[in-house]
């Protein structure tokens, strides 16, 4: 059942007017700066905030239709929501928290607790069920919150900045786990985030929201390769390449190797920011560890730089200054050499 929403909500200086559709099994990231209206959209989808105009539906099930006077309250929507700071009920044990949504929907206590324990085991908290939320670490609490949201088989999963309250190290682990759970989840997922890495790593499709409007929409790769505004370019330039780490080298799934500064192992994402990619017409002197031949596919100017989409063994996105672009005589189809310092390559567990 596809989630479709076209909603309008006035919000101080501007009106949030967003139009999104999310297919079953799809993860849509809503990416944008703080105050862009992302969380407003999520509150409308959840039924916590009635929209001023528009319609929200899951398949044939209409949740909001302002013209027809329909507003299904939050508690009657089949959805799960994960909040930024988990919001586990402090007076209930972790198991009771996860079982809460089943109990309110009339599932018997023993059955609900058994289902809750099953989900806690799935998120790696099998031993933590009897604890209080205050006794969990941030990462554990967010895993429990995910279990609580998913236990009732919701048609829609809403994630409101699910990783932003976590410290950097925990975020990596929880992000990787979240990816696996989202891959298994059959419903529609809407992920609100201001972190482009979350969007790139977790989403099938990205909408970028600015001042309550969608400024761009597409797959993470499309959006980072062809940013339509400066803001989008700055936000989502990242090239995210899947591969397998072996010490300080990563064998990319698409072929090619990338040298990295920090040793890692197992399945990872390699992230390269476009401003850290340098382009040359001839193979550069010396021996930089990351140097690949490539072909310029497209060039999109934004501000004082030009975003270059490269094709080759290692597909990358590079930002070069407009001056350098002209001096090198770059144009689509030109063969170039791309280099990146190992220290500027980030590695995320996958």
């Amino acid at each position: 059942m596809t989630l479709t929403a076209a909603v309008e909500v006035p919000r101080g200086a501007f009106t949030v007017a967003l139009d999104v559709a999310v297919a079953p099994g799809e993860v849509l990231a809503v990416l944008g700066p703080n105050g862009a209206g992302k969380s407003t959209l999520l509150r409308v989808l959840a039924g916590l905030l009635p929209p001023d105009g528009g319609r929200v539906a899951v398949g044939d099930d209409v949740w909001d239709d302002v013209a027809a006077g329909v507003h299904v309250p939050a508690h009657e929507r089949r959805l799960g929501m994960v909040f930024q700071d988990h919001l586990l009920f402090p007076h209930l044990s972790v198991t009771e928290n996860v079982a809460f949504g089943l109990r309110t929907r009339g599932v018997r206590r023993a059955e609900a607790r058994a289902a809750a324990r099953g989900w806690l085991a799935r998120v790696g908290l099998g031993e933590m069920g009897d604890r209080r939320p205050a006794q969990l670490s941030g990462g554990q609490a967010q895993r429990a919150a995910l279990a609580r949201a998913l236990v009732g088989d919701p048609a829609v999963l809403l994630l409101d900045e699910p990783l932003s309250a976590l410290d950097a190290r925990t975020r990596l682990t929880v992000r990787a786990e979240l990816r696996h759970h989202l891959a298994d989840y059959p419903g529609s997922t809407v992920l609100v985030t201001h972190d482009p890495v979350d969007a790139m790593a977790l989403a099938d499709r990205v909408v970028v929201v600015e001042d309550g409007r969608v400024v761009q929409e597409g797959t993470p790769a499309e959006v980072s390769r062809h940013p339509r505004t400066d803001y989008v370019a700055r936000l989502v330039g990242l090239s995210l390449l899947p591969g397998t780490a072996e010490g300080t080298g990563v064998r990319l799934d698409g072929g090619g190797r990338v040298a990295v500064a920090e040793a890692a192992s197992g399945p990872v994402f390699v992230a390269v920011r476009p401003e850290s990619v340098a382009l040359y017409l001839a193979r550069p002197e010396g021996s930089p560890r990351n140097v690949w031949p490539a072909r310029l596919v497209s060039a999109t100017p934004h501000g004082a730089t030009v975003r270059c989409e490269l094709d080759g063994e290692v597909p990358l996105v590079a930002d070069v200054t407009a001056t350098a672009f002209a001096e090198l005589g770059l144009a689509p189809g030109v063969a170039v050499w791309a280099t990146v310092k190992a220290s500027e390559v980030a590695v995320y567990a996958r």
Partner: peptide, 14 residues
């Protein structure tokens, strides 16, 4: 914190 009440609503609680 009224957000706990929001969380309860998303979990089916009237």
């Amino acid at each position: 914190d009224t957000r706990f009440e929001d969380a309860a609503a998303t979990l089916g609680a009237d």
